[in-house]
Amino acid sequence: MAATQFIEVDGRRIAYHRHEGQGPWIVFCGGLKSDMEGTKAVHLEDWAKARGRAFLRFDYSGHGESEGAFDAGCIGDWHRDTLAVLERLTEGPVVIVGSSMGGWQALLAARAMPGRIAGMVTIAAAPDFTEEGWWAGFDAAQRAEMERTGRVELPSDYMEPYIVTKRMIEDGRDHLVLRAPLALDFPVRFLQGTADTAVTVETAVRLLDHAEGADMRLLLVKGADHRFSDETCLGLIEAALEEVLAAC
């Protein structure tokens, strides 16, 4: 496997793997506290290489091999990381694949650089989760703890507990995508499992209803969970990506 490479963003080294090939570039944006060595990221890289396609995967600051502490980061920091790798490590049109929080990052990238994004696939996209999920779900004691200590610890079904900081909540409000027009003027495929306990089917339907675009579809997969990474689900991601690439 090729050695990890790095670029500097806001004074932190951001880790990535980049494989040149036929465009448009396929860029994978991982989920919260995930990294570029995850099943979906590595599988799609192998898929792209086998077809001679350009592919990029990377770690946000505070994730994987990139510098920084996770609980010092926020959506805006990871948005700047995403834009930096798109601007500096790819050329021409991009098909962006976003998993969970990476789906929010994909939507933010489409809003920030609409001329570059040629297509999108999301997997259990989690737009606005800091506000609609975390903050909205806090009880009075948790909100008081946030004000008192600047942080709250939340359990996770998939990994160690999340440390949610006041900065994450406040910064998230500056990056909401479901409360203003969201134009996705390119082929889009949203994938969502019905057994996902982190992102609800209702969230996926709300995103589909809210976004504006002529070629947009939502695929619900009965019984699939948030990981969406078994053999069947990986095949569905491939098929969605093939559809988007063919329509670009």
Rank of each mutant, 00 (worst) to 15 (best):
L176C: 11
R148G: 09
D174K: 14
Y158N: 04
I163Q: 13
G115V: 00
W135K: 13
R111N: 09
W134T: 09
R179P: 07
L176F: 05
T165I: 05
A180E: 08
R151S: 14
V152K: 03
G115Y: 04
E160A: 15
D128P: 07
K166H: 09
E131D: 13
A136G: 07
S156M: 07
V201G: 01
V177D: 05
V199W: 05
W134C: 11
A141D: 02
L154W: 06
P187N: 12
Q142L: 12
M159D: 13
L176W: 05
A141T: 02
G133E: 13
D128Q: 03
V152P: 02
R179C: 13
H175I: 12
G137N: 11
V188P: 00
F186Q: 01
A112S: 11
L108Y: 01
V164H: 01
T200R: 02
D174H: 15
A110Q: 05
R143E: 01
V164D: 08
A109D: 01
M120T: 11
L176T: 14
M159I: 11
D171E: 14
A118W: 03
Q142T: 04
E160T: 14
A112F: 04
G137I: 13
W134G: 04
M113I: 14
E170C: 08
A180H: 14
T165W: 10
E170G: 05
T149Q: 10
A106M: 06
P187L: 10
A126I: 02
I163A: 11
G150R: 11
A112K: 00
E145P: 05
T165Q: 09
E147T: 10
I123G: 02
A110I: 09
A112H: 06
T200Q: 05
A124G: 15
A136P: 03
R116C: 04
S156N: 07
M168Q: 14
T197P: 12
A106E: 02
E145T: 10
L178A: 03
V164C: 08
G150M: 09
W134Y: 15
T130A: 13
A136W: 02
F129K: 07
P181K: 09
T194I: 12
D139K: 12
L191M: 01
D128M: 05
L154T: 11
D139T: 13
G133Y: 12
R148H: 14
E147C: 06
L191P: 00
I123M: 01
D185V: 10
L107P: 00
L107K: 03
L184G: 00
Q142I: 10
G119P: 03
E170A: 13
M146F: 06
R151Y: 08
A144G: 10
R173S: 12
